[in-house]
């Protein structure tokens, strides 16, 4: 665990995102709250459709409205980003809050040199002249581990490998010394050995710059080594959140347990894989009550089906949104 200085940089309260669709309103994010401190890594873990990506896009006003509708508060310094004008948001994006995406190929413009794409933000937000921007671009590429950066400034995205492109994306994200870095599955498209490099790189950069990192992923393995806290999302809600050790050692939400239990673990090939039966719910037709009850092995009575459980403290550091905690059962990962 890392000693971050504890200064709060982001406070999300009751964030909700809905989309109008032809089939009705899709409730994609349903009231999530969390905080992020400087120098801290918060991992948001969930499967596809859990709302993890949309919730982070909503933080910086990247959810198109309409068809989307974002409510709640996202406190960043003096501002509430949900009610900010698009002008203010543009200033925050890329300058104070940077984002890196899963697919570095599509998030880089194929017809511009990476030098151009790197310096663009700096000239916009930092008012650097050409020479200073170029110098800083070289520094940044060097910092993210791209060999002979001065010669590569004139190259186009397709001339880089996947891992190298992700490094370029990270360099672009860092260009204006962001306070918060949102990493949206940045390693999902990469090979394991490259993934390890990128994870390490982002963690190094966090330590050096003291920025807060929100790491969005579907893979509980990837974030175990670098996260300070983990929030598990299901059907647009945070169902469990805890310090990283507590979450992996004694997961209390049945979904978290299922997720951990269904993960094949290297070195334990004989372990029976637990499965969560069924499918995640359709955001247009969310079940009433607890969104997990139709798949829940723990469900005890009709309260689960009628009342939505709120996050509460278990006394061991876990905050869990469930009426009936899963026992520290044998299925739980040791």
């Amino acid at each position: 665990m890392t000693g971050h200085n504890g200064q709060r940089v982001l406070e999300v309260h009751d964030l909700q995102v809905r989309f109008g669709t032809r089939r009705g309103a899709a409730h994609v994010v349903n009231g999530i709250s969390y905080t992020l401190d400087a120098g801290e890594t918060l991992a948001i873990v969930g499967e596809s459709g859990s709302g993890k990506s949309v919730s982070s896009l909503a933080l910086i006003g990247l959810v198109p409205q309409p068809p989307g509708r974002v409510t709640g508060t996202v406190r960043f310094g003096e501002r509430n980003l949900v009610t900010c004008s698009s002008e203010e948001l543009r200033h925050v994006r890329g300058n104070d809050i940077a984002m890196i995406f899963q697919d570095p190929m599509t998030s880089l413009n194929p017809v511009l040199t990476i030098g151009r794409q790197l310096t663009e933000g700096m000239q916009l937000h930092l008012q650097l002249d050409d020479r200073a921007a170029r110098r800083r671009a070289i520094e940044l590429l060097d910092r993210v581990g791209i060999p002979s950066p001065d010669r590569r400034l004139g190259d186009y995205p397709h001339q880089f490998s996947g891992g190298m492109r992700q490094r370029v994306m990270i360099a672009i994200g860092l260009a204006c010394d962001p306070v918060v870095l949102i990493a949206d599955e940045p390693t999902t498209a990469l090979d394991v050995t490259t993934q390890a490099q990128i994870v390490e790189l982002v963690d190094d950069l966090r330590r050096d710059t003291g920025m807060g990192v929100i790491w969005i992923t579907h893979d509980l393995g990837v974030v175990a080594g670098i996260a300070d806290r983990v929030a598990v999302m299901y059907a647009g809600q945070i169902v469990e959140t805890a310090q990283v050790d507590a979450l992996y050692e004694h997961p209390r939400h049945p979904y978290t347990q299922g997720l951990l239990g269904s993960l094949p673990v290297l070195g334990q090939p004989e372990r029976e894989l637990a499965t969560i039966p069924g499918l995640p719910p359709d955001p247009v037709h969310l079940p009433s009550g607890c969104p997990f009850w139709p798949r829940c092995p723990q469900r005890l009575d009709e309260r689960c089906e009628t009342e939505r459980p709120q996050l509460r403290d278990t006394g061991e550091g876990n905050l869990v949104a469930t009426f009936y905690e899963a026992k520290p059962a044998s299925e739980a990962v040791s």
Partner: peptide, 12 residues
């Protein structure tokens, strides 16, 4: 190298 890069769901 490949084995060492595989992430483990175990923070410690």
């Amino acid at each position: 190298a490949l084995l060492s890069a595989v992430p483990l769901p175990d923070p410690k």
